[in-house]
Amino acid sequence: MGAVTAADRGPGEVPARSPKQDRSRATRQKLLEAAVSCLAEHGWAGSTVSVVAERAGVSRGAAQHHFPTREDLFTAAVEYVAEQRSTALRALPAQDRAAAVAALVGLYTGPLFRAALHLWVAASNEPQLSERVRELESRVGRETHRMAVELLGADESVPGARETIQGFLDMARGLGLANLLTDDGARRERVVAQWTAILDGALGRGGRQP
């Protein structure tokens, strides 16, 4: 049989990806995941395109085919994992507020936050990164706030609710910074419990509804 052409497909039918396209997507994903891991472990100075390509098991040429510059690779990597994180949070089942608070704090204690922090520091000294990272952080910040409002069952039409959510996220970011040096899980649990009580008082008891 011959190849299926656009005329052969029914209306609305999506063309199947070719094996070459699948390989390209797989290579891109490997590079993005390797870039985040390298950035989290080695920082900006130690995370070159060659190091990432080796970790991903692809050639430097293949890496540069997908991401022509180092800045392209690392901003895309942080954005990719942020999107994966958002997808996972949106898939969470209806839960009580304590679980939602813990899940949101968890955003700032993993490798993505560590990688993003290295990218922010590099952007403060690298003009070619600065504008990209500011724009990326703005988008990620808006999405994180939106998810927090949903997960915590907040009504931002109530005076002070928006500021309470933002204050909570700022606190969570602070816990993430502290976690870079020591994993003080016991203290963090107490802080999370206290913030759950604060949010219950400020927002009313509840959480995302089924």
Rank of each mutant, 00 (worst) to 15 (best):
H65L: 15
R90L: 11
V191E: 00
V149D: 01
V140N: 04
P11V: 06
V101A: 01
R28A: 13
R208F: 05
L112W: 14
E126Q: 14
G106F: 12
Q209T: 12
W195M: 07
M147Q: 15
A45M: 06
T48F: 10
A26G: 07
P11C: 06
G201M: 06
G57M: 04
M147P: 01
E189I: 03
E41Q: 14
A3C: 01
E163K: 08
L112P: 01
L73K: 03
G153F: 07
C38N: 05
G206R: 03
A26T: 10
A197S: 12
A53C: 06
R173W: 05
D155R: 11
A34M: 05
S130Q: 12
A103S: 09
K30H: 12
Q64E: 13
R70K: 15
G207E: 01
P15C: 12
R187L: 14
A178D: 08
F67N: 00
R17Y: 06
E135P: 02
R23W: 05
W195A: 11
L151R: 00
T109S: 13
E131L: 13
E41Y: 00
E156T: 15
L177F: 14
R134G: 09
C38T: 13
T69M: 12
N125A: 15
A98Y: 04
R70N: 03
N125E: 14
L199C: 04
V192P: 02
V140E: 03
E41V: 05
R25S: 13
R173D: 04
H66A: 14
L119D: 00
T109M: 03
M171C: 13
L175R: 01
V140T: 09
R146Y: 01
Q29A: 15
A6Y: 05
T48H: 07
E13R: 13
R25I: 09
T48D: 05
D170T: 02
G10D: 12
S50W: 07
E137V: 08
L129I: 10
E126N: 13
L39A: 12
F113T: 04
I165Q: 04
E135T: 14
A94K: 04
V36E: 08
L119N: 02
V52D: 02
P159V: 03
P127G: 10
A62D: 00
A62L: 08
V52T: 08
G167E: 04
A7F: 10
P93I: 11
V105C: 07
R25F: 06
A193W: 02
W120A: 15
E137Q: 12
P159K: 01
A3Q: 09
D183W: 10
R114D: 10
Q95F: 11
Q29N: 09
A26R: 15
M171L: 15
G12P: 05
I198C: 03
A122E: 02
A186C: 03
